[in-house]
């Protein structure tokens, strides 16, 4: 059966050649056909990103009074730019918050506001931290909305508090930490430029560079393969799963420290999230 599949693939490969010469004769209004088929695939999505549906829902969640305390996050939540301010907030995170005495990323900060200000149940929120179809994640929707308000804002981290500096240094060490059955660290795939895994280009996230900017500024993103908006917490957890590590806890030290390291390497890049990814 394997061999048959192969033969089939081969036969199809021949057809591709014929088919492409056929389509080449057609004239298209927006024939932004790149020679690279993967970018061609991505270009076909245009600016019609289903993440907009999450942004719409997130806006409601941010603006409407909710929870036992019946207050709106827009009236109470400080994401580092002042109460209720979302413009640019994500571009300056993770950062130290005096009220919690912690370095927080957007998601843990939202969680703080939802639990402390609105009186919502932390366990219930976390149960749906990653949505799936009808089971929707408020954290993902809120993240999409807040992040969208930073579009065009360059990443710039305060990096003044000792805890912020420590988070960055730890993030760097964690980035190179090899373990598990496959000896992987983040650097195994993201330590250099110009490589790909299967057909996916692997960005160099180890140093401050344009690839690191482009990657970080397009998360959170609508993941085509999932049909969901995914956040940085999800992205890191999923990477560690594929690295054969145990399960990354949401809002954990490792998640925040690594996010700090990645954000710092993306400094200067203009936010363009929510993005659209494979």
């Amino acid at each position: 059966m394997r061999a048959k599949t192969k033969q089939h693939m081969f036969w199809l490969a021949i057809v591709v050649g014929a088919a492409s010469s056929f389509t080449a004769s057609l004239v298209w209004a927006q024939s932004a056909t790149s020679s690279d088929p993967v970018s061609q695939y991505r270009a076909m999505f245009g600016d019609d990103n289903p993440a907009d549906l999450w942004v719409m829902r997130g806006k409601d969640l941010w603006q409407k009074p909710r929870g036992p305390k019946n207050v709106a996050l827009a009236k109470t939540c400080d994401l580092g730019m002042g109460t209720g301010v979302i413009k640019g907030a994500y571009a300056h995170m993770p950062r130290y918050f005096a009220d919690t005495n912690k370095v927080q990323d957007l998601e843990t900060r939202l969680l703080t506001c939802m639990v402390r200000d609105q009186g919502l149940d932390k366990a219930a929120i976390l149960k749906n931290r990653f949505g799936d179809g009808d089971r929707k994640s408020d954290l993902e929707a809120l993240s999409a909305y807040v992040v969208g308000a930073s579009k065009g804002v360059p990443i710039s981290l305060p990096m003044s508090h000792p805890q912020e500096k420590r988070a960055y240094a730890m993030g760097k060490a964690l980035f190179y930490y090899r373990a598990g059955t496959h000896d992987f660290s983040c650097a195994s795939c993201h330590g250099q430029s110009g490589k790909r895994i299967r057909l996916q280009q692997l960005p160099d996230l180890a140093t401050a560079n344009p690839e690191a900017q482009k990657t970080y500024t397009t998360w959170p993103a609508y993941r085509v393969s999932q049909g969901e908006v995914r956040t940085m917490e999800w992205r890191l957890g999923s990477c560690f799963r594929q690295m054969r590590f145990p399960k990354l806890k949401y809002g954990s030290e490792v998640a925040i420290d690594l996010t700090m390291f990645l954000a710092k390497n993306a400094e200067g890049g203009k936010m363009a999230a929510p993005g659209l990814k494979r």
Binding site: T23, P37, V38, V224
Partner: peptide
């Protein structure tokens, strides 16, 4: 008919 020659994901 315009469709990608390679789809990174068959779901979309």
């Amino acid at each position: 008919l315009q469709a990608p020659s390679i789809a990174e994901n068959g779901a979309v």
